[in-house]
Structure formats: structure tokens, C-alpha cells
């Protein structure tokens, strides 16, 4: 039983791992280089950087983390994690990109506070009357009022 066990998890090997490392280093070089090129907009640059990062992440998970040869269930578990992270980001973006009245951006720290209309100024308007009572106030209540 133990023999079969050790056989079973023997995939990859130094050659494959070293090749993976070289690929990862090359991709790192590319991503640094790409950051000096303007691809049109900030978000385009970010998208390219994230694409390269994801390629690196896939290489790490397939070869270093053995997902390529491992039981499929582990890959499914890993994929589920990223899928739900994707759901989280997607729905947040649906909201934030479609706000009718987005929060003001880049406002200086000490912006002058907006004047409050007098009718809403708590210092000018009298406090609302307490609710009329039908029941005679009990002891503690009488004190408070």
C-alpha cells in the first residue's frame, strides 16, 4: 500500500520545476518591462499586469502545487475559491460603476461644510414634544422627565 502511495505522487520532477521557475522569471521580466510602456490607459496597463500575474499564478498552481497531477477534487476546491472571489468583485463593480450619485472624488480634506438650512438646524428648532401619555408616569419615569 505504501509503495503504491509513494509512486502515485511522483510527478513533475526537477526538470519540470526548473523550467517552471525559468518561465516565471521571464514573465516577471515581461511584467516589469510592460509597466514602462503606455498601453493607452491606466486600466489597460493594470489589465495587462493582472493577466501576466494570473499566468504566473496558474503556472505555480499547476506545477509547483501539483494540481496538474493531483486528484481533481483539489483543483475544484481551488477554482471555487477564485470563482467566488470573482463573484464578489463583479457585483461590487456592477454597483460602483452605476451609482447615480457617486460620492465626490478628490475632494480636499477640509472642504467647507455645506450650510444646513435653518429649518433643519437642531439648535434652532425646538425639541419635539414627548409622546402624550395615557398612563400615569411611574416613579423612575417622573424623575427623568
Amino acid at each position: 500500500m505504501s509503495h503504491g502511495h509513494s509512486e502515485k505522487h511522483h510527478h513533475g520532477g526537477p526538470v519540470v520545476y526548473t523550467a517552471t521557475l525559468i518561465a516565471l522569471l521571464i514573465l516577471t521580466g515581461i511584467t516589469v518591462g510592460a509597466s514602462y510602456i503606455n498601453f493607452g490607459s491606466n486600466s489597460a496597463n493594470i489589465a495587462i499586469a493582472l493577466t501576466i500575474a494570473s499566468m504566473k499564478a496558474i503556472l505555480v498552481s499547476l506545477f509547483f502545487m501539483h494540481l496538474l497531477w493531483d486528484k481533481k477534487v483539489n483543483a475544484i476546491i481551488a477554482a471555487t475559491g477564485f470563482l467566488f472571489l470573482g463573484i464578489f468583485i463583479t457585483f461590487d463593480l456592477i454597483d460602483l460603476n452605476n451609482r447615480r450619485d457617486p460620492t465626490p472624488r478628490n475632494v480636499p480634506v477640509m472642504a467647507t461644510p455645506t450650510a444646513v438650512p435653518e429649518s433643519m438646524n437642531p439648535q434652532l428648532t425646538p425639541a419635539p414634544k414627548p409622546y402624550p401619555k395615557k398612563v400615569a408616569p411611574v416613579e423612575g419615569e417622573a424623575e427623568k422627565e
Binding site: I87, F91, I94, D95, L96, N97, N98, R99, R100
Partner: peptide
């Protein structure tokens, strides 16, 4: 359960589109 959370935020200033989707 993971794709309906926005229904807690219908009047919280969430975008109209997100309201409808959720």
C-alpha cells in the same frame, strides 16, 4: 446565497442597476 447580498442595501445608496439585479 452568494449572489443576492445586495438585497440588504436597496435603500442604502446602492446603484439602481445593482438594486434590480439583486
Amino acid at each position: 446565497s452568494f449572489i443576492v447580498w445586495g438585497h440588504h442595501m436597496f435603500v442604502a445608496g446602492q446603484s439602481q442597476l445593482a438594486n434590480v439585479v439583486f
